[in-house]
C-alpha cells in the first residue's frame, strides 16, 4: 500500500519537452524521472487479467527495423498493443529497401500514410535525428548504430530503481565492448545525470578515447571496477561490428573480463547483475552468473514493456513547448 504522500507526490515536470525520443542526451533528470514514474503505473497494467488500456486508441505506430532485433521489436510491439495503438511492422528483408530505396524515401512514403509515431532501429548513428528533421511523426530511437539506445537505458534505470529505490550514490560498473556499444552511451549519460557513480571497464582496444568526458571512471583492471559495485552491467562482445583484432581470443576475454562467481564476491552483497542481451555465455558472462540469484536479466526484459509504454504514452500527446511552434 502506498502512503498518502506518495499518492500525491507532484513530479517536477509533467511532460517531455521534445516531440521525439532520439537519445538520453536530450532528456533532463526530471524528464527521466517522469518516464520512470509513468512506467511504474504502466507496469501494473501488465499484471491485470485484461492487459490493455484504451489510451492510444486510433494512433498508428510504425516499427521500422533495419537491423535484426528480438527483444526490442517484440517489446515495442507489446507495449503498443497494450496501449491499444494500431501497429505496423516493416521487416526490411521483404520491403522496398532491398530494391534500393533510401531511408528518407521509405520514411516519407510511410509518413504519407499518416502514422503518429515511428520507432526506428538503424545501423547508422544519427539515422533517427535525420528522420526527425524530415518527418512530422514522433520518432523513437530503438537503437541507432553506435550512438544511442535510450529505451534500453531507461529500462535499465527502472530495473535498478525498483531494487535500490534510487540511482543517486550507487556504484554502477559497466564491463565489455565500450567502443561499439550504444547501450553504454545511453546508460552512462542517464546514470550520471541521475547521480550514480559510473565505472567503465574493458580491454584498452575497446575503450573510446573520449569516454572520460562523460564523467565516468575508466579502467582496464576488472577487479578495481567490480569492488564494492552495487550494479554490474555486462555488455555483449559485438563480433558482427568487429573488423579488427581487438583482443586475442574469446577464451582470453572471458579469462580476463568475464563475470564469474568468484569475481562477483568483490562486489557488494546485494549486487545486481544486468545484461541488455543477447548474451554470449562463456564470453562476457558465465552461465552460473547469468542464471544465478543476483541476475536481473529477465526483469530487465519484463520492465522493457512498461518503460516503452511510458515513452509511447508521453510522446503521443505531442511536445510541451519547443516543437509546437
Amino acid at each position: 500500500m502506498t502512503t498518502a504522500s506518495e499518492i500525491d507526490k507532484k513530479p517536477a515536470v509533467t511532460a517531455l519537452r521534445h516531440k521525439d525520443l532520439l537519445g538520453i542526451a536530450d532528456l533532463s533528470a526530471e524528464e527521466i524521472a517522469l518516464v520512470l514514474d509513468t512506467a511504474e503505473a504502466m507496469k501494473e497494467v501488465g499484471t491485470r487479467p485484461i492487459k490493455k488500456v484504451p489510451a492510444l486508441r486510433g494512433k498508428t505506430v510504425v516499427n521500422l527495423f533495419y537491423e535484426p532485433s528480438t527483444r526490442t521489436r517484440t517489446s515495442f510491439e507489446i507495449a503498443e498493443k497494450r496501449l491499444s495503438a494500431d501497429t505496423l511492422n516493416i521487416a526490411i528483408g521483404t520491403s522496398s529497401v532491398v530494391k534500393g530505396e533510401t531511408l528518407a524515401d521509405t520514411a516519407l512514403n510511410l509518413e504519407a500514410m499518416s502514422p503518429d509515431m515511428i520507432v526506428l532501429r538503424h545501423s547508422s548513428s544519427g539515422a533517427c535525428h535525420f528522420l526527425s528533421r524530415i518527418c512530422q511523426s514522433a520518432i523513437i530511437n530503438a537503437g541507432d548504430g553506435m550512438h544511442e539506445h535510450p529505451t534500453q537505458a531507461l529500462l535499465d534505470a527502472f530495473t535498478i530503481r525498483e531494487r535500490k529505490k534510487q540511482l543517486k550514490g550507487l556504484k554502477v560498473t559497466i564491463i565489455g565492448d565500450l567502443l561499439h556499444s550504444r547501450v553504454l552511451r545511453s546508460n552512462i549519460q542517464l546514470l550520471t545525470k541521475m547521480g550514480a557513480e559510473v565505472w567503465v571497464c574493458g580491454p584498452p582496444t575497446l575503450i573510446p578515447t573520449d569516454i572520460r568526458r562523460f564523467g565516468v571512471q575508466v579502467t582496464s583492471k576488472v577487479d578495481d571496477a567490480i569492488v564494492d559495485a552495487d550494479v554490474i552491467m555486462l555488455l555483449r562482445i559485438q563480433l558482427e561490428r568487429m573488423e579488427g583484432a581487438y583482443f586475442p581470443s574469446l577464451r582470453e576475454y572471458f579469462r580476463v573480463f568475464g563475470m564469474t562467481e568468484e569475481r562477483l564476491r568483490l562486489a557488494r552483497p546485494e549486487v545486481m547483475i544486468m545484461h541488455p542481451g543477447p548474451m554470449n555465455r562463456g564470453v562476457e558472462i558465465a552461465s552460473e552468473v547469468a542464471d544465478g540469484p543476483y541476475s536481473v536479466i529477465l526483469d530487465q526484459v519484463a520492465n522493457g514493456v512498461a518503460v516503452r509504454m511510458a515513452v509511447l504514452y508521453l510522446l503521443a500527446g505531442g511536445a510541451e513547448h519547443e516543437d509546437a511552434a
Binding site: T14, A15, E40, M42, A55, E320
Partner: peptide, 25 residues
C-alpha cells in the same frame, strides 16, 4: 484506481502535455 488511461479527452488535442499516469492498486 487511476483513470488517466481511460479518459475520453486523452489525445483529443493535437499538441499538449499528457496528464500524469499514477499507479492503480
Amino acid at each position: 484506481l487511476d483513470i488517466t488511461l481511460y479518459r475520453d479527452d486523452l489525445m483529443r488535442h493535437a499538441v499538449g502535455p499528457q496528464p500524469q499516469v499514477r499507479r492503480t492498486e
